[in-house]
Amino acid sequence: MEATKEKTRKLTGSKAMAQALEQEMNRDESIFVMGEDVGKYGGIFGSTTGLYDKFGEDRIMDTPISETGFIGAAIGAAAEGLRPVVELMFVDFHGVVMDQIYNHMAKIPYMSGGHVKLPITLLTAVGGGYSDAAQHSQTLYASFGHLPGMKVVAPTFPHDIKGMLISAIRDDNPVVFMFHKTLQGLGWMDQLDASLGPVPEEAYTVPLDKAKVVREGKDVTIVGAQMMTVEALDAAKKLAERGIDAEVIDLRSIKPIDKETILKSVEKTGRLVVVDEDYYSYGITAEVSAIVASEGFDYLKVPIVRLAIPDVPIPYSRIMEKFVIPDAKDIINAVEKMVTA
C-alpha cells in the first residue's frame, strides 16, 4: 500500500534509501548489508549513510573487491534464510559477477521448483551525465531486464525509492534495485529538484510492478525511467507552453513492466515517445514499442518514436556525452514533429 500518513518530510534519494534500510533492519534481524565502502564511508552514493554507527560491522559489512565472492555469498546466505542486501557500487562493475547473478541468483529458485528462496536485494548505482566515461556511466536497465528470474526496479523520486526498497527487501525473490546517481541528492553532483521530495517517516511499501503516471495529458505519452522521467517532465512543461499536453509515465519497474498503464495512456493520447538512458537496440524503447505495437496498435495515430543512446559506449568528453544521452530538447523535438505530422 502506498503511504498517506501525515508525518512526512523532504528527503533526498540517498537519505530515503538509508531510512528504508534502517527501518527494515530494525524490524528484521535477518537483514544485513554487504558491499564495497558501505561501512564508515556510508556507500559511495550515500545509500548506507549512518548505518555503520547504528548497526556495527556485523550487519553493515565492508567487503574486499571480491564481487563474485560476496555476491555469490549473498546467494548462499539467502538460501540459509537470511535476507542479504548487497551493494555493487556501479552497475558497470557487474561484468565480473554476472555468472553468480544470472546463472545462479536468477535461476536457482526456478531450477529448484520454487523450493529454494533467494530474498536478495542487489543495490547498484546507474547513469551518466557527469563525464565518468564508458565504464562508469551506463544504466544497463535492459541487460538485467532481459534475464528471467530477477525483478528489476529503477525508481526516480525519493518517495518511491524508499517504498520500493522496502518492498524489495521484503520480497522473497531476488530484486535488482537500481538507483540513479544524479537522483541521490548528493552534494557533489548536479543539484536537481527531483532528488528531494516528500517521504513519510514510517515504513511503507510501493509495489515493484507498477508504473506511475506522473503527469496527466491528452496529446502524447512519454515513457521514461529515472533521469529520462525527469527530462520528460521538463519537456512536458515546455510543451504545455506551446499548447501540447503531454502525459508522462515513470516506469519505476523495468521487470516486470507495467503494460496496463502504458496501454491505457496510449489509448488516450494516440502518440508514444519512449525515452531511455540505455542503449537503443533491444532496450526499453524496443520493449515498450513492441508492447504497444502488438497490443495497442490501433491506438496509434503516428509511428512510435524511440530516443536512446545510439549504440555507442558512453563517451568521456562532455560535448559527446550530451549528444548521445537523450534530454528534454530531444523529446520536445520528437513530440513537435509528431503532433504536426
Binding site: D92, F93, G95, V96, Q135, P315, S317, M320
Partner: peptide
C-alpha cells in the same frame, strides 16, 4: 576531453591507450 587526445576525447583519464609505447589502463579493478 579534446579531439587531439589519445582517444579523441572518448576515453578520459581512466581510459588511456597509447599503443606506440604499449600502454593501457582501465576503470575496472
Amino acid at each position: 576531453g579534446k579531439k587531439t587526445g589519445l582517444g579523441k576525447g572518448k576515453g578520459g583519464h581512466m581510459h588511456l591507450f597509447d599503443p606506440n609505447v604499449k600502454f593501457s589502463c582501465g576503470g575496472i579493478v
